[in-house]
Simulated assay, not measured.
Amino acid sequence: MEGAGRRALPPYAPRGAELEACLACSGPCVEVCAEETGVLRRDDAGRPYLAFEEAGCTFCRACLEACPEGVLREGVERRPLARFWIDASACLAHQGSVCVACVQACPEGAVKLQGMWKPEILTDRCTGCGLCVAPCPVEAVRWSG
């Protein structure tokens, strides 16, 4: 889903998890994430989600180690966390301006320039960490969770 209400599950949470156990939890996963990148947030009900607009996930495992409820589990590392693409109509580089913010932000080398000015996200290399989202000055990096 794309838009203001979109959510992506934290790493180490099973696909499709409802995160009901998180509702009664104090959120230590979010607290430890704040020390790393701050990408993990809680919605109004208390469920954790990834706020890619602010930061990306480094897969540091701090949230996994802090989870007292067993919601985040060893062996459930989910990559990609979300699907990412570049909206060419919004992208400065696709419009001919010099911008490589998303390319420089990607630790996996999954954002490549096609030709001189056309960044593209290589889905086979993308981990879905979201580190390319916040650096984009025009919000051209789009995603769905």
Rank of each mutant, 00 (worst) to 15 (best):
E35M: 15
E35D: 14
E35S: 15
E35W: 14
E36I: 15
E36T: 12
T37W: 14
T37Q: 14
T37S: 09
G38A: 15
G38V: 09
V39Q: 04
V39D: 00
V39F: 11
L40R: 03
L40T: 00
R41I: 07
R41L: 14
R41W: 10
R42K: 14
R42N: 09
R42L: 09
D43C: 09
D43H: 11
D43Y: 08
D43F: 12
D44S: 12
D44F: 11
D44A: 15
A45W: 04
A45Y: 08
A45C: 01
G46P: 07
G46M: 10
G46Y: 05
R47V: 02
P48E: 06
P48I: 06
Y49V: 03
Y49S: 01
Y49H: 02
L50M: 10
L50I: 03
A51F: 06
A51V: 05
A51Y: 06
E53Y: 03
E53W: 01
E53M: 03
E54F: 11
A55K: 06
A55D: 03
G56N: 08
C57V: 00
C57T: 02
T58V: 01
T58Y: 02
F59Y: 09
F59I: 02
C60Q: 03
C60S: 05
R61K: 09
R61P: 00
A62S: 05
A62D: 01
A62W: 00
C63V: 04
C63L: 09
L64R: 08
L64A: 10
E65R: 14
E65K: 07
A66E: 02
A66S: 06
C67K: 04
C67M: 01
C67T: 01
C67H: 03
P68L: 11
P68V: 13
E69N: 12
G70Y: 10
L72C: 07
L72M: 09
R73H: 13
R73M: 14
E74A: 15
E74V: 12
E74N: 10
E74W: 02
G75V: 13
G75L: 12
V76M: 11
V76E: 12
V76C: 07
V76T: 09
E77P: 09
E77Q: 13
E77Y: 05
R78K: 15
R78T: 13
R78F: 02
R79G: 10
P80D: 08
P80W: 04
P80N: 05
A82S: 09
A82N: 04
A82L: 05
A82C: 11
R83S: 15
F84M: 11
F84G: 05
F84A: 02
W85F: 03
W85G: 11
W85R: 14
W85T: 07
W85P: 04
I86M: 12
D87V: 07
A88R: 12
A88Y: 02
C91R: 10
L92C: 05
H94K: 04
H94T: 03
H94L: 06
H94V: 06
Q95I: 12
Q95H: 14
Q95S: 13
G96Y: 07
S97N: 10
V98C: 13
V98H: 13
V98Y: 03
V98R: 12
V98S: 11
V98K: 11
C99R: 00
V100A: 12
V100M: 05
A101D: 00
A101E: 05
A101L: 11
C102G: 08
C102R: 05
C102P: 04
V103M: 06
V103R: 09
V103L: 02
V103I: 06
